[in-house]
Design a protein around this nucleic acid. Structure first.
Lengths: 135, 135
DNA sequence: GCGAACCTACGACAGATGTAGTAGGCTAGG
DNA sequence: CCTAGCCTACTACATCTGTCGTAGGTTCGC
């Protein structure tokens, strides 16, 4: 439904993540969260991030007390989905399967993760079988 | 081994792709290939892309005849690998499994692709079994 | 030998992004 | 009340990227 997911810079995304993970917060708080994640920037820099995110429609600012409190207006899923799609498009011509293969070949998985993936893929396969033969 | 994979802009990546896919080429040829992919830009723009890619160490220019011929110096795998890693890091804190799950839930796969993925994942699982129990 | 065609080196420029300083306003404690 | 602190609105600026135009050298056909 939402018209379009705007492009976000790396720092902007990082900022948004602090809101998804820690809930609504003031500039000061966001700054602390960013610092914990290793991004140590000036107070006004954080304000800039938040302001730009607001212009892009990704966060909302509510006056509470003396300071504004910012909260995410787009879900993590939406952003993640669009970024992943973007990557798939750029690197694999839009085909997801090659990316999955790539990941299976170049990244490592714990036994648990592997089992989960197996289960998931089996489910997908079953769904498809159930749909195709059509009786 | 290579020190580092430099950051590439979207257009730069697109340009590199034409070299991977079609082999070494002149500015003129690269321009045509880009046009076919829907990116219609001026001759000098392509030259700029190629020049920047050269500065970043991604392509090499050989004087052949009157015009330079550019060829990729980094493999597609290296670039793809680093981009994927980057994405995984930014969106999933570096864990590949969640991305695979995400893809399985939000993207679609043909029966063939599904089968291939299944095979692949089973292989991985088998490998792990064989390594863990140790006899 | 000349002009047309082509080639590359530079310089430019706008927009996006990361980063920060300044200035002026509001708040709360004394 | 008045001051010390905190808050936000602006402005600024460097870099990176995508896009070109101009200018000057090279080549090739005639």
């Amino acid at each position: 439904m939402p018209p379009r997911v705007p492009d976000l810079g790396e720092a902007e995304l990082e900022t948004l993540k602090t809101l998804w993970d820690g809930g609504p917060a003031t500039v000061r708080e966001v700054r602390q969260r960013l610092a914990q994640r290793g991004r140590k920037v000036a107070h006004t820099t954080v304000l800039t991030f938040l302001t730009r995110l607001e212009q892009k429609g990704c966060v909302r600012a509510d006056k509470t007390g003396h300071a504004y409190r910012y909260r995410a207006r787009v879900s993590r899923d939406r952003i993640v989905g669009s970024r992943v799609r973007e990557t798939v498009k750029q690197l694999f011509d839009g085909a997801a399967a090659p990316l999955v293969l790539h990941l299976m070949e170049h990244e490592s998985f714990s036994p648990d993760e592997l089992a989960a993936l197996q289960r998931h893929i089996d489910d997908l396969a079953r769904q498809q079988e159930g749909r195709r033969p059509r009786r």
